[in-house]
Amino acid sequence: METKLYTITVFSENTVGVLNQITIIFTRRGLNIETLSVSPSALPGIHKFTITLFTTPDMVEKVVNQIDKRVDILKAYYNTDEDLVFQELALYKLATEKVLELGSVEYFIRKYNIRVLEISNDCTVFLKAGHYAETQSLFEELSEKVGVLQFIRSGRIAITRSKVERLSDMLEEMQKIQEKQNGNRKV
């Protein structure tokens, strides 16, 4: 079956070992994580994971269900690129003397919409936000023309295009269901 890039979003409690709980599900099925980004979400105490991987529709569905099943996971879902507004960041460290040899950096700034974070005797640092292909193409052009001393790209961060993602509504709903059930069922 044909594979494509999926973006998995996971909301979790901020407890020790959650990342391991998620990654072991990929390990078991022999799946490689392409990018991973973790940070506190808009809700206090809840972390958000954005994971990308190449796989089949069937596999991503099963993996997401198995992540969602974990007790410490609040919610997991997946999207393809069409559903998302997404971004990555990249930093490029260049030798300042080589940059000066170019005579001008205007070309790069205009073409790639980069920001210059640092210029010192030792190095110059560019920052570029963009999709993988964009940060990659800058990397290739810089490598060829200037030489890149260090390069780092962040994992993907993404938000859905569809209506607002209301985790707090979902949490409220879960609480209502459980309170109703606790009334009916002796726990």
């Binding site: 979790s12 409690e13 007790v71 410490d72 996971i73 609040l74 949490l171 879960m174 609480q175 269901i177 459980q178 309170e179 059930q181 606790n182 069922r185 726990v187």
Partner: peptide, 14 residues
Amino acid sequence: KPCTFIRSYLPYPE
């Protein structure tokens, strides 16, 4: 205090 609710886990789906 016994546990009666975990916000990240719904044991009995509706």
